[in-house]
């Protein structure tokens, strides 16, 4: 763990912990018990994971970090940070690339570059009585390397790296500062203005809006036209059976 001076431009009131190697930054954050907002970054993860326990390939040089927060809100509102994180992640990438061209968002919070998966976000919360006690926003970005297509689920968006797609080489630490700044701005906006501006911005960058997509839920699969997201963040799918709002699913193009 290192505690040197924070870099220029680092957001006020936010702590930073840099680790060399950890099982997963989300697991570390859950056990840390930080009282204020804290970014935890690791150079390497030995047990990085994605949604539903899928392994997240975590070699050195890519970005692995978790923002630990202690929101005092209901669970449905806390979950809207999925979109704040996606917007911040897209913005950090665009800033370092010098352009937002080629970047898009896949519901709810994957960042795509040139149609491939550049980054993923997994949020985990613990709480009691309908209130959240601790939220971990785990973010992984393929800065210099992407897993090969055979390492991802069949039908999933192919992974890409920032380096291979753009020739830009960014260190994880540089990326963290850009991301922390961008997230801080979206968090402030969310607290001041609610979800509406985040929803509008998210829709402005959404991949496949108005097109046919497939949403696989725990028990079933639905195909329909992707008609945006509602005020709870749920995906709106227009199917032959009618309009469906889906709060949790894996999306396939």
């Amino acid at each position: 763990m290192s505690a040197e001076a924070l870099p220029q431009g680092w957001p006020q009131g936010v702590a930073r912990i840099l680790l060399d190697r950890v099982d997963s930054t989300n697991a570390y954050a859950a056990g840390l018990g930080a009282t204020g907002p804290t970014w935890i970054m690791a150079a390497e993860q030995t047990g990085g994971r994605g949604r539903r326990g899928r392994p997240w390939s975590s070699p050195r040089g890519n970005f692995y970090a978790t923002l630990s927060l202690r929101p005092t809100e209901t669970a449905d509102r806390v979950a809207l940070r999925s979109f704040a994180a996606a917007l911040a992640l897209r913005e950090a990438c665009a800033g370092l690339m010098g352009t937002g061209a080629g970047l898009a968002l896949k519901w709810p919070n994957d960042v795509l570059l040139n149609g491939g998966k550049l980054a993923g976000i997994l949020l985990e919360s613990t709480g009691a009585g309908g209130q959240i006690a601790q939220l971990s926003i785990g973010i992984g970005v393929n800065l210099i390397a992407a897993p090969t297509p055979d390492q991802v689920e069949s039908g999933a968006v192919a992974p890409v790296s920032l380096l291979a797609e753009t020739g830009i080489r960014v260190t994880p630490e540089t990326f963290l500062t850009a991301l922390a700044r961008a997230y801080h701005a979206w968090e402030s906006r969310f607290q001041a203005e609610g979800f509406a501006p985040l929803r509008a911005e998210w829709l402005a960058h959404a991949a496949r809006l108005g097109e046919t997509i497939t949403a696989r839920t725990g028990q079933s699969s639905h195909q329909g036209r992707f008609d945006g997201i509602d005020e709870s963040g749920a995906l709106i799918l227009t199917t032959p059976q009618g309009r469906q709002t889906i709060p949790a699913a894996e999306i396939f193009f």
Partner: peptide
């Protein structure tokens, strides 16, 4: 409970014995 790719770990609201489970794994 998952929503918006947020995995919410739901705690027991009291100590005791699990008498009934009223949902199927992966159901809305």
């Amino acid at each position: 409970i998952e929503a918006m790719k947020t995995m919410n770990h739901i705690p027991a609201n009291r100590a005791g014995t699990v008498k009934r489970i009223l949902f199927e794994d992966g159901s809305p």
